[in-house]
Amino acid sequence: MTEPHGLTPQETFALTRRVTLYSVATAGVLVTIKIAAWLASGSVALLASTADSGLDLLASLTTFFAVRYAAAPPDAEHRYGHGKAEGFASLVQAGLVFASAALIGQQAIEDLIHPRPIADGAWALAVMGVSVVLTGVLIAAQSQVLKKAASVAVSGDRAHYAADFASNLVALAGIGLAAFLGLNSLDAVAALAIAALLLWGAVGVFREASGQLMDHELPDEVRAQIVALMTKDPQVTDVHQLRTRAAGPYVHIQMHVDMDPKLTLEAAHKAIVAAEKRVLDAFPAADIIIHADPRGRAEPHGGAFAETHAA
């Protein structure tokens, strides 16, 4: 689960906008040069990598538009904002990776049965070398963004390209061995390894995206931090019914707090606003709802997710 960071939605959007644009540009360049190299060499490993890069371009475009839509402010029809668009984009990425792995695996098996020699292996190796460098630079840029901003879409894109980086290295080894040692079957074996790496990466992307779409709770340490910030004021003696979830760059937090029943409404309101500000200082992209209960006199609340006496 991607942890929230201490950036405003505007700061997060500025970072994700730049890195997704670079992702699209990188994928476009890789598709172009790999198509040219595959036509010249006929390498099935290179064909596998080309197909993967084509789906990378589609996935990067999906992420490019998703982070922009997710950053749109709440409107009358989406009062919780549009942050889950990032989760949907990650699911699309996972589906594309699964499809890519299936196509690559099918082609690799066919080539194992009917191996073909590699032509212009040096040209193919040069292209794969460029792919490794460009993909590595992109992953480094995405990692820097994720250290500062929480984005499940960028995280999914990075996982996708990390698998791509590994697949490029495998393809590089397979093409080299096939072209210069005459071991043509290794080209197809490399393609099968690429398919396996892609499947592994797709599972990770799917798990993270589904966690956000299913409103998975924030990590325990984050929840503990929220409770500590709320109870820093001795007037707030307990936090219960704490519910948290992430939606793209946003974090939604709701809770009940116990307070002295002798406090005036104005005094209780002032203490709650101060507590809310403490949480917002740590999580500027948070949407917070706080319900005050009179300590020792509150009845369990009803509703679809009613709290019990035991809770």
Rank of each mutant, 00 (worst) to 15 (best):
A101G: 09
A101V: 05
L103V: 11
L103Q: 10
I104G: 01
G105S: 08
G105E: 05
Q106W: 14
Q106I: 11
Q106A: 12
Q106D: 10
Q106G: 13
Q107M: 12
Q107L: 11
Q107E: 11
Q107R: 11
Q107G: 09
Q107W: 07
A108N: 09
A108R: 07
A108T: 05
I109T: 13
E110H: 14
E110Q: 13
D111M: 11
D111V: 05
L112D: 06
I113Q: 12
H114P: 00
H114M: 02
H114E: 03
P115Y: 02
R116N: 09
P117H: 07
I118T: 01
I118D: 03
I118P: 02
I118G: 01
I118E: 02
I118L: 04
I118F: 03
D120M: 13
D120E: 15
D120Q: 15
D120S: 13
D120F: 12
D120Y: 12
G121F: 09
W123V: 14
W123H: 13
W123P: 00
A124K: 02
A126W: 15
A126R: 15
V127H: 01
V127L: 03
M128S: 03
M128E: 11
M128D: 01
M128G: 00
G129H: 08
S131V: 14
S131R: 04
V132I: 15
V132Y: 05
V133F: 13
V133G: 07
L134Y: 05
L134I: 08
L134R: 04
L134H: 05
T135L: 03
T135Y: 03
T135S: 06
T135K: 06
G136I: 12
G136C: 11
V137L: 15
V137E: 08
V137R: 09
L138R: 08
L138N: 08
I139V: 15
A140I: 13
A141F: 11
A141K: 10
Q142I: 09
Q142H: 12
S143G: 06
S143M: 06
Q144D: 10
Q144K: 12
V145E: 01
V145M: 03
V145Y: 01
V145K: 00
L146S: 01
K148M: 08
K148Y: 01
K148R: 15
